[in-house]
Design a protein around this nucleic acid. Sequence first.
RNA 1: CGGGGUGUAGCGCAGACGGCCAGCGCGCCGCGUUUGGGACGCGGAGGUCGGCGGUUCAAGUCCGCCCACCCCGACCA
Length: 587
Amino acid sequence: MRMSKLFSATLRDVPSEAEITSHQLLLRAGYIRQLGAGIYSYLPLAQRVIARIENIMREEMATIGGQELKMPVVHPADVWQETGRWDQFGDEMARFKDRTGHDMVLAVTHEEIVADLALREIQSYRQLPQLIFHIQTKFRDDPRPRAGLIRVREFTMLDSYSLDRNQAGLDEQYRAHYEAYFRIFNRCGLPVRSVGSDTGIMGGLEAHEFMYLTPAGEDTLLFCNQCEYAANRQVATFRKPDPPAEMLQPPEKVATPGAATIAELAAYLQISPAQTAKAVFLMAELADPLPPRMVFAVLRGDMTLNETKLVNALGTASSGAIKSLRPARDDEIVAIGASPGYASPIGIDREKAWVVADDLLTRAPNLVAGANEAGFHLRNTNLGRDYQADIIADIAQAEDGAPCPSCAGTLDASRGVEVGNIFKLGSRYTDALGASFLDEDGLPRSIIMGSYGIGVGRLMACIAEEHHDDQGLIWPFSVTPYPLHLVMLSSRDGSAERESEALYQALMDAGLEPLYDDREERAGVKFKDADLIGIPLRVTVSTRSLQSGGFEFKRRNQEERWIVPAEDALAVIRAEIEKLEAQNMGH
RNA sequence: CGGGGUGUAGCGCAGACGGCCAGCGCGCCGCGUUUGGGACGCGGAGGUCGGCGGUUCAAGUCCGCCCACCCCGACCA
């Protein structure tokens, strides 16, 4: 590709909207351009990187038996209504009506379509297992896109779906994906760690996320410093303290004027927050006919509520009717008989709220809790004696430094970007759409599904985040848009032009198309652009290099330069590419 | 959705108190010089000043409404 003809140009100044490195570099080097919030065009250079990433994905999917297909981006609403996700996805799903007035959606993911295909194609156990995938556009109308390509609304995803006759088959395909995904990230030069994760709106039994660790990430992860325990904070558990056993004391009302927070209460009574119980009020928005319902969460005063755990704990009690939680207003708190700032589950109207208590409270005696009367608290409250809970579950958030749940180690918090995830779904979707198969015994059984995804653009952005220096990008060879950057520096006698044109032709003939800087620019401009664009191997043809005996070779990530005679250039380029490929695989 | 910020040429920005033809740097076009780390000179092109409405003799500048984008939070496979 001649740079004189390349569609995009590099930018000298950083566009003001870009804050994180990958976004700045991808914009400056001419890979991407923004159209709207979270909506980007991928220019030719980016498209080539993406094509290489997708090629790696296809190869790895093939090794685990994946069959590529392509499912639609526009879906009729009915399949989404049948699984209930028409309501669950809410505003994140873009909806419109077609000309005949039928509800349509833009794909947010494709479980429903796969289940529908399974219904039509799979009749017999003989047809299972199956693994199908595609690399396709999704649109999720995220309320807050950010950080360039890290979090966008329109994106391309590799998503694959396994269909099995039983749990054992699912376990096997899940394992295969787990390993294939690590190989994909590894080949792309991106270090990732897997963490246990929430199943969220996908539902199902088990899920892992693949996380690229970076302070720019928006997920908080907890890793044990001694064992393999790793989890997203949304689901991370930790070993809770064991309070010393005490005789239960009788409740005692105390005046605590102005102590409406745990910190103020502990200070006023000169006790530790661990000797108090904290009340957190949320309103659960329920599926359509039902009115919102109060959720009253109670934790020991030194713990923080984890909303994901709370929603999961409520899942059973509410029959999965909860659409979302929001903080309750004071008037809603008063309406159940509680007093904001001085609340406890003691004496409230139990008919109007779900009380969810953290499991630590079952063995944390004699806590100070609100008296449901402004300015007063109760000493010595005890779960089970003074109040009851609808649900007792772990709803406390694991903090940095918490004790590991599975060994004597400590959990350390890190930030990460989720570049991929895998879910054991079970039969939620296939049952909803009636996709079953006949087993050997002639009885219909549910098809068991798994779903697996990697965000392609996000992966590219993370690679850029990981591989750059202050001059620009440094692509791993496996995803570089061109295998080498051929830089021609104009000469007085035309010799550099002649030699570089000859090399360009030879490379094209050899199937090694370079990015060829044939522009009439000064050396500084060309070198700066080459560094910015980040192709791992640079070959310069100039009067100076010719006088030194040939062409100058330089790796993007090294300072060293060396001269190769013109007649050896092609062979050396081949050898360099081989070395770069080998290096890449060693990541 | 709440809080904060920004919208002036392709990019980065300046334009007190309202006042004639709206500027600067980079980039872009032409000519010349230069030619190994973002050159120099001369000459050019390029603008609905985010939009609509208002105040005024006069609005990029003041007022109102709206829109877009960015950041923090809420939210989120």
